[in-house]
Design a protein around this nucleic acid. Sequence first.
RNA 1: UCCCCUGUAGCUCAGCUGGUAGAGCAAUUGACUGUUAAUCAAUGGGUCGUAGGUUCGAGUCCUACCGGGGGAGCCA
Length: 465
Amino acid sequence: MDYKNRTRIARIILSDEIALNTDVIILGLVRTVRVGKEVAFVEVNDGSCLKNIQGVVGEPDKFPVLSEILTGASVRIKGKLIESQGGGQKYEIAVEELDLIGPADATYPLQKKRHSYEFLREIAHLRPRTNTFGALNRIRSKLAYAVHQFYQEKGFYYIHTPIVTTSDCEGAGGLFRVSTIDHENPPISDGKIDWTEDFFGTESFLAVSGQLEGELLATALGDIYTFGPTFRAENSNTSRHASEFWMIEPEMAWAELDDNMDLAEEFLKYLFRYALEKCEEEMSFFGQWIDKEVRQTLASVADSQFERLTYTEAIKILESSSEKFEFPVSWGVDLQSEHERYLTEKKFKKPVIVYDYPEEIKSFYMKLNDDGKTVRAMDVLVPRVGEIIGGSQREHRLDVLENRMKEKGITNIEEYQWYLDIRKYGTVPHSGFGLGFERAIMYITGMTNIRDVIPFPRVPKWAKF
RNA sequence: UCCCCUGUAGCUCAGCUGGUAGAGCAAUUGACUGUUAAUCAAUGGGUCGUAGGUUCGAGUCCUACCGGGGGAGCCA
């Protein structure tokens, strides 16, 4: 079989680059078959785009294989590309050869109808074959490319931070243990597990962030970014948390919080514009089936300023608002979801950056402001998704950093010697943030559950496929 | 982890105040059609999440457990 000479459907339908009457070979999965006496139609999708192409069989009697071709089968169609004689599509294939490559029987779970997302999650091995997940996986790929393009064009270096970490206190929640110790018969010393016997000679975990290492590279290379998997062993059961997700973490040397906010805003707008301009087919699909206003929202956000306000200002707005909150607000408490949602969805109706948070509720590495009460932290909040970016200017003053670590109760400071060393030798002001890639995709596509924007989600009680 | 809702044919669901199950789609068979989530007809298909309990009798009520959804916390 000459699989190599096949023509991808996107080249026919989307880019219009195949001339009429060209002999083409289509390889793909059957979406639906309609067999009659005089004519039969075999509609195929090959994953290159949303649209299917239909093969037209003029004399069905001469193709007994038609009776074996059901929805879900893989087929090879050879024939001439012709102008469609029916309405509804521009092109079709006048079938000359029709081969069933891989049959699918009546048990094929994907029917010619809409399925619930809940059901599709249970068949995550097959859901990529649906229109929605095809579009999601394609736009995910394109947006990942856009991430690299954005940073590479700005002169940032793409760096790889370790997946396995030995520091158990990165300030971002629960960690997954990495171990080769026989857990049914662990080595014991002084009544406790002897981790020096473990693979790395010490306790080790999956990284919850590449930030600390990112800072090291930034002070050497200037501007860097990471884009990789991140693991959080939190028992979070929400539509916007996953145990394994992809995060983009830029880190800029010689940059303060304003520069950080500028970068975050520019970055998000770049992704929104990229989706609108370079992912037209997917975005029109999402606009039709997922969220009718999503394109309009992205376009208006891409052309407007994000609202920036300090935590203190945010608290004042919330306190003077007539909105009834379940949790009362006052200076010093962390903003609840309902507060964040009010700010971004009701008050400003666009992305909002809140910065300068009370130091008590933020991590040790964030730069202390001169007021001694707040730190240079920032959160970017967007409607429907909530917190999409979290970042800060880092504390680059060695003595201040050491003090804050002590205040935060970090006892094993000597294990962070490497982190402190970049402050000890030629320290530079630097800033960075983390963007949850899936949350960005949710915002861009209008999808409302993080489990549907990553092909194989990992969440509490679910790591199948 | 907490609160609320939910679990009935392959899928989406109906099943009122308890009396041993229905529809649409899918599938199978046949007919018909330049069709396009094709159409029409017939047929097959369910130990009602699991385990207990109340009751003469439970899909329907109660308890526990296991899934799923929404919200909260944690955050990206």
